[in-house]
Write a protein that binds this DNA or RNA. Sequence first.
RNA 1: GGGCCUGUAGCUCAGUUGGUUAGAGCAGAGCGCUCAUAACGCUUUUGUCGCAGGUUCGAGUCCUGCCGGGCCUACCA
Length: 571
Amino acid sequence: MSRILVTSALPYINGIKHLGNLVGSQLPSDAYARFMRARGNEVMFICATDEHGTPAELAAAKAGKPVADFCEDMWQVQKDIADGFRLSFDFFGRSSSERNRDLTQHLAGKLAENGLIEEVSEKQVYSHADGRYLPDRYIEGTCPNCGSENARGDQCENCTKQLDPTDLINPRSAISGSTDLEVRETKHLYLKQSKMRDKLDKWIDSQKGWPILTTSIAKKWLHDGDGLRDRGITRDLDWGVPVQYDGAPWTGMEGKVFYVWFDAPIEYIAATAEWADANGLDDAAWESWWREDKGADDVKYVQFMGKDNVPFHTLSFPSTLMGSGEPWKLVDYIKSYNWLTYEGGKFSTSQGRGVFMNQALEIMPSDYWRWWLLSNAPESSDSDFTWASFQGGVNKDLADVLGNFVSRVTKFCRSKFGEVVPEGGAYGKAEAAVVAEIGKRLTAYQDHMEAIEIRKATAELRAIWVAGNEYLQATAPWSVYKTDPDAAAAMVRFALNLIPLYAVLSEPFIPDASAKMLVSMGAEGAAWPTDLSAALEALPAGHAFTVPDVLFAKITDDRRVELEEQFAGQG
RNA sequence: GGGCCUGUAGCUCAGUUGGUUAGAGCAGAGCGCUCAUAACGCUUUUGUCGCAGGUUCGAGUCCUGCCGGGCCUACCA
């Protein structure tokens, strides 16, 4: 048994996320966490909302709410959706928590003690009309390069040229449109990541088997140009972790907060502390997951995220933890995902294109989404969501292969023997062959899950389901029953026993259906099999069960067309 | 501009350190079964492995160039 710490990238607070965000971190991390728990490991699975930064303030303003209230409301919305998708977080925290404020300030203080924080004076654009400093991308104007009138302060989308806000001709605020802008001198703290470069480089080199996507992005940042650059970790905002606090070694930082990307990953730790608080545990409980001097030395820590998050998790966050000089647990494996596209294009919040998490739950059960998304996870490259593919995957895999298997076995038994596991006959060669086949598949399935090769794992799981149908077809108990009811009884008994096995093995992907299967078979306590033969005799003759309702209703062509139209968007 | 990823059957993808007739699922075709959500099983068609060179006894796998798709490029998160 191992102790495994799993974190999913934190969803940003400003709105409801779409399916691409779900499949890029929360869903695979959940399947992994569930699998690891099922195998008997001690798992701590953490997620939280990422609440700070300019977009949150603007979203709150748009909603006409104080930002703290807005975040509290949105946290609840996201929490409910996470529950709807059966995301089994041990704790779903908030980066605006007191725990995170304290920890962020603490780590910043340590970094300062170790000479890794530098005060830099820089020029920032201030908008009088908006009453705030504007991040580069919130300034728009005419591109000096191509003349496009909608260039942003960080880059012109038309000609892709990198820009500085001061390069723009006729700059205006993207928020209010105001041209009443002023360049002000303002001081900020920088994290001297450049001093950490060699250490980070060695650390990354020492990691085995990280996805290419993860290491190549990290290496690029480490070695591109002059190498890893220092990074500003404070902002002129109201909403965030204050830079000023008791004993802070900085003056002149009043009214500033830490940059959201500095405090967000720290929330992984803080959320674990929030978990301890919520469960009435002391600090030792969460420290045993995060402090190598307090029990975390045997923890395996796995992070899940979309590829956009990789630089922060491979470089910035490790810089923070290493630079503190304290024995914080560093990540052992970073699983990163590509993007999910929608019907060949991008998901678009502004154009209402694609499916968002709340909508998804309104139209289909979570198991359907979990299965399709995970069996098509963008692991090696971007993958495309289409309604046709979704319909095909759900109908074929879930309804036909698994659902119908359960249905045909239980209904056949009911009609010939009643709703009890039948007595008589004995397992023979055919059953041994299935045990051998499933045993081989199960090993492959487990290996793929250990390696976090989710798509491959789902393919093996599916093959395990198929083995049940093959068995029935080969042995044909409906025909054997006519001449040898005892032999047929043994076949049915074996097939019925496959159902709780399938339920247990499928739980990481389709927890609701899995639970239904166990309940209908009266096998709620079924555990992950260590001995397959024994597991397939777990339901003894005479054990009562109930024929379950249809586990997965199919998606009709009409419904699919309807959904295609409903989600086509305006764009 | 630079960097990374990617291009394998109609579709979605596997193909380990280069090694015998290139695989799976879906879709198509045929057969079988009739317990079941017209479900299941078996058999089966299709590939100049993006293009052009090169290395090698041998390349989908390595090298070079080109073409196509995607992503990143540090103040959105």
